[in-house]
Design a binder for these strands. Structure first.
Lengths: 232, 232
DNA sequence: CGCAAACTTGATGTTGCTCAAGCTAGGTGG
DNA sequence: CCACCTAGCTTGAGCAACATCAAGTTTGCG
């Protein structure tokens, strides 16, 4: 059962998908599965970057800190995402488990070798990196120019997308209000108040703090794009 | 926010540097030089991404807009940087010339072909993309968690780095206060007031609006990293 | 010389932060 | 089984940082 679980998981790795059978098997050869409990650190900002990871199950937070403790979460990573492609051999952010997390770990050196050996592999990674860059730019727009309700609405829609929900759907929120605040450049109080307001206005429902139901996706989308007329 | 400029000695183009002579010549074969006057648009958000560019001379601004006109500048690009590696064939930001700009343009299709053909090319692009991603994450920290004086100090140091100035140096500021504000998530008035305050405190001098002299780099660095005790 | 664009400065306003309670739910031990 | 404890969440009151609105100033250019 364990062996079966292993092979199934590995075959589902996004990284392996789209590669030749040989390429995929090379990749598997240098991979090991890892597990982290909530709150555990994968690596910290400034650590030597000796591994590349892919999230198999669960959710991570990536963040940077200022010396006085102010934190900016740069992303929440769900299954299928990579991390550790550090430019200069040094991690530029900290990675921590939010939920129970399963990871596929590749040794950096072997991984680098594969980039040269396996046709199409570098191109694939380039596409992934470009996509992340684009997401980072959208996040800059959010952080620099959106108001609190627009930020929260954007976050909720992002979570819905990530979970493949597209109508009026129930979303799981595995992270705390503190995580959400540090992702959106807000305080926990502002996040909480804004969610309350969205509930009062009928855009969402909040059965529990970690489950949110989207009740009016159209209005939420308008709000997220800054097209809402007033109020809030 | 970008990788520091590559030196563009023999081959003139950063992209060609580090490649085999054959690779470099292939690259040259598909490139054309372009020129833009200040304020001209290279491409706009939503355009089809049919070209990849490298900045040869001058400075560009990249930005995203909200429907109501709010603008977030995601980066200022100086010589040696690329743009146009769009993930889905659609530009995700607008690119405009700030100064007179000279560019090297590569047709997308030919460029993609080279990625497969020239050894080490994809890896090189991957390194560039990783570096930009890292810069984007630093900018998120700035936008989400730094106060106005910290943002402005960070910007000044970034400009100094970009121009290779490392002591107390005179910096050229080719962009307007409006550009700076839209890059830092501030208004022009706040940028102006903050610069005035930095001048009053002796950290900088402002001989003209577009030239700034760094007078106390240490304090500026402390400020940029949020380590300054108080005041401002 | 006059105009326009960019910048600076001042007065006032608002958003979101800080500080301060209370509330809720899940986990633990009696 | 229940009472307690704690971490996380919500709510309220007051405040500060930055935005907005409104003049003025400077500079480059026709």
């Amino acid at each position: 059962m364990q062996a079966q679980a292993f092979s199934t998981t590995t075959a589902e790795l996004a990284l392996a998908g789209g590669l030749s059978p040989q390429g995929a098997s090379h990749l598997m050869a240098i991979s090991t599965l890892q597990h982290k409990a909530p709150g555990e650190t994968l690596f910290a900002e400034g650590d030597e970057a000796d591994s590349v990871y892919e999230v198999v199950r669960g959710m991570l937070r990536l963040y940077k800190l200022l010396p006085d403790g102010r934190r900016q979460i740069t992303g929440f990573l769900a299954a299928g995402h990579f991390l550790g492609l550090a430019p200069e051999g040094v991690c530029v952010y900290t990675a921590e488990a939010i939920t129970e997390v399963t990871l596929c770990r590749y040794k950096r050196k072997a991984f680098d070798h594969l980039i040269d050996e396996v046709p199409g592999f570098a191109k694939r990674l380039l596409a992934v990196a470009s996509h992340e860059l684009s997401a980072a730019q959208s996040q800059m727009l959010l952080l620099g120019r959106k108001a609190a309700p627009e930020k929260v609405a954007s976050f909720l829609l992002m979570m819905a997308d990530q979970q493949g929900k597209d109508g009026e759907a129930m979303i799981d929120i595995p992270m705390t209000r503190s995580d959400i605040g540090d992702y959106l450049g807000l305080t926990i109080e502002t996040v909480s108040r804004t969610l309350t307001k969205l509930r009062q206005d009928g855009l969402i429902a909040l059965p529990t703090p970690d489950r949110i139901k989207i009740r009016d996706r159209d209005q939420l989308e308008e709000l997220a794009e800054g097209e809402a007329e007033a109020a809030l």
